Simulated assay, not measured.
Amino acid sequence: MGEQGVWGRSAWPVWNPARPGSRSARVRGVVVLSLFLLWPLWEILRPEAGGLDAAVGAVLPLYGAGWLIAMTAGPRLPPRRRILLVGMLFALAFVAALLRGGPLYLGHAGLFSFALAAAAWLFPALWAVLLGLGIGTAQALVQWATPGPIHWNLMGGLFPAVVIPVAVVLLIRFVVQLGQAREEIAALAAAAERDRLARDLHDVLGHSLTTITVKTALARRVLESGGDPERALAELRDVERLSREAHGEVRLTVSGRRRPSLAAELAGARAALRAAGISPILPPSADHVPAELAEPFAYVLREGVTNVIRHSGATRCEVLLGDDWLEVRDNGTGQDTGEDTGQEMAGHYAAKPGNGLSGLAERLRAVGGRVEAGPLPAGGFRLRASRA
């Protein structure tokens, strides 16, 4: 619907395109709509009305075809063409009414009701209501101003002839709109879930695979240099443990039950940095961080340390932690450390923010925070997350 809702002046109904269906289904829809035309046609052709003449016989096919077009193809037309189409229906209904019964017949012609139904289907709801009131008032004035006695039976038919088509069609519109809203909500929820899953898997697997790669490379170098086999075995046992933990984290991520711990991420960051030959300078604890910031800060720490290992070429990484802020600093030059896994951060990591930085920004916005990333004046890189 329009910007101002179903009652707004700009609320031209825009229905979703019909889903592809069989030709027989479309034919059935046209047949059902055609059956509704039997009532106004009977009002015109019934024996009491004098039967059919050539003039009315020329008007009725045009009216029926116009009404079917309005109800089937009308919602896909621009507003100006909708107005012309509905105006044509009212003009044909007016001509048919005059041909059959003169001015008095205007208040009893079912053709006006169906033209109002088309207006309620194609126009903004407020326009349809005002148009119905105007048509009803005009018909009553014609009945009142016509010389001779007032035909109360015709006057009594004005109210249902105006109210029923507008009310019923608007009710149908509301039902259709609710159905479309449910479909849109479902589509948005599915898209949001896909984004969440992609973001969380990126955060989980990026860090885990980076640490596994670093520890595996360290074990290989130890064995190739003839070093202590026990150290190599210890690194491989860590790789096995990390693989099992990553598997469990992926399962929790898919189910939406994963809740990272800032303290655990600090411990994991220390081990990963040491395995990569980077000196870690980390805070002793994270107990002072508010609970609502602990989870997004855990993601920031994981992403920042992962990119330091993968892309910075640093020898030192420092993590600073306040009550409502966290910084990850390194002394690197921005040179990749070997694994071509794609650059994620801004500044010397990439020309534009990637999935990692975008995902962190989304997490921080949810708690009223923001993420900043850029090079340090003295060299290196800084990733900062804070509550705005």
Rank of each mutant, 00 (worst) to 15 (best):
E3H: 14
Q4L: 15
G5V: 02
R9D: 13
P13E: 08
N16S: 14
N16E: 14
R19W: 07
S22R: 13
S22H: 14
R23D: 04
R26P: 00
G29R: 13
L41N: 15
W42V: 00
G50S: 06
G50T: 06
G57C: 13
A58S: 12
L60P: 11
W67T: 06
M71D: 07
L77V: 02
P78N: 01
R81I: 08
V86E: 05
A91T: 10
L92T: 07
A93F: 07
A97R: 03
P103T: 07
L104I: 05
Y105E: 07
L106K: 02
G107I: 14
H108W: 11
H108D: 12
G110A: 14
L116C: 03
A117S: 12
W121K: 02
W121Q: 03
P124R: 10
W127D: 06
L133I: 13
H151G: 09
L154A: 11
M155K: 06
F159L: 15
I164Q: 06
V168C: 06
I172L: 14
V176C: 05
V176E: 10
A181N: 12
A181T: 10
A181P: 01
A189L: 09
A192W: 09
A198F: 07
R199V: 04
H202Y: 10
D203C: 09
T210C: 12
K215L: 02
L223G: 01
G226W: 03
G227H: 00
V239N: 08
G248S: 13
R251F: 00
V254A: 15
G256A: 04
R257M: 04
A264P: 11
A264F: 02
E265L: 05
A267C: 01
A269C: 13
A271Y: 04
H288S: 10
E292H: 11
E295L: 02
V305T: 03
R310F: 05
S312C: 06
A314V: 00
V319Q: 08
L320M: 12
L320I: 15
W325A: 15
D330W: 04
G332W: 00
Q335C: 01
Q335G: 03
Q335N: 01
E339V: 09
D340S: 14
Y349A: 11
P353K: 08
G356I: 04
L357S: 03
A361N: 11
A361I: 11
A366Q: 00
R370P: 01
A378M: 01
G379V: 02
A388F: 03
